[in-house]
């Protein structure tokens, strides 16, 4: 099963005087069990891509589909989960459990099955249903609310999960909790993380897609990015600082070899080349 963008273009308001192009000839595939990092500055088409990926929009050209060689289908809430930026602002129900159960209920699950799915989802984001299930969502802290909102989408048991800036505004603890939640679902799900900042997710990405002005600037594996981090630098995007140090050092004649995202390893490689250090 794959999530596939096949030569997708999208123009808002096509045919009207308010036409605005958002995506142009974008093609890529997401496999379950992998994490795709989508990078791009504001206005590069990232949010359009997310809406297309979740089936909220139909592309004006090309196809977005979920399935495999046997059967392709348009994405829907049951197959592709979408978590927007700051999703905690969308919590509404009286209890955390019933909020998380909103999705499964909409998909036709009966009350008991929906609650069961919700409990599982809460566990998968590291929130104990006994502790949090009956609380009002409005009493949760920022990080907890974020995870509850994520659970709300995970409860739909989607095969693919699209996350828009999932760690925006979280402090270190909140970020760790979120990374753990993503790790937890990753083996069954194809995860797509959209961000304007490469530093955080590059280390766990299998595939990297860089968008600029609606077009694909780069599509490849993490190894390919590490071999040439310049592919990340388009418009006002910058490669992570750790890589930039190594890139600049190499430009200045230091033969570092393969780049590393780990700060200590990168520093050691630099030291070895310069034969400083003991």
């Amino acid at each position: 099963m794959q999530l596939r963008f096949a030569d997708v273009s999208h123009i808002y308001g096509i045919g009207t005087p308010y036409e605005q192009g958002a995506l142009e000839n974008v093609s890529f595939t997401v496999e379950p069990g992998t994490l795709t990092l989508v990078l791009g500055p504001t206005g590069s088409g990232k949010s359009t891509m997310l809406r297309l990926g979740a089936g909220l929009l139909d592309p004006t050209a090309g196809q977005v589909s979920v399935g495999d060689s046997g059967a392709w289908d348009t994405p829907s809430p049951g197959t592709v989960g979408l978590v927007f930026q700051r999703p905690e602002t969308q919590l509404f129900a009286e209890t955390v459990l019933s909020d998380v159960a909103f999705g499964p209920t909409n998909l036709g699950l009966d009350r008991d099955r929906a609650r069961e799915a919700s409990r599982e989802a809460l566990v998968s984001v590291g929130m104990d249903p006994e502790r949090f299930g009956d609380r009002s969502p409005f009493t949760l802290s920022g990080g907890e609310a974020r995870r509850a909102a994520l659970a709300g989408v995970l409860a739909l048991k989607p095969r693919f999960l699209l996350l828009d800036e999932p760690t925006a505004g979280l402090d270190a603890t909140g970020r760790h909790a979120l990374h753990q939640a993503i790790r937890g679902v990753r083996d069954r799900t194809g995860v797509v993380v959209v961000s304007h900042d490469a530093e955080e997710f590059l280390g766990v990405a299998d595939q990297v897609l860089v968008l600029t002005e609606g077009r694909v600037h780069f599509l490849g594996t993490r190894e390919e990015v590490l071999a040439d981090p310049l592919v990340l630098e388009v418009d006002d995007l910058r490669a992570p600082d750790v890589l930039r140090v190594q890139m600049l050092a190499r430009d200045r004649g230091l033969d570092i070899g393969a780049f590393s995202l780990d700060p200590e390893i990168a520093a050691q490689r630099i030291l070895q080349v310069g034969r400083w250090g003991r």
């Binding site: 600082d241 750790v242 140090v245 700060p263 520093a267 030291l271 400083w276 250090g277 003991r278």
Partner: peptide, 20 residues
């Protein structure tokens, strides 16, 4: 205190610790 040293500063402190 729940704060993380940014990667660049970790590079810097590793280099410093090595005597650079």
């Amino acid at each position: 205190c729940g704060l993380e040293v940014p990667p660049l500063q970790r590079v810097e402190s590793t280099l410093r610790a090595a005597g650079l």
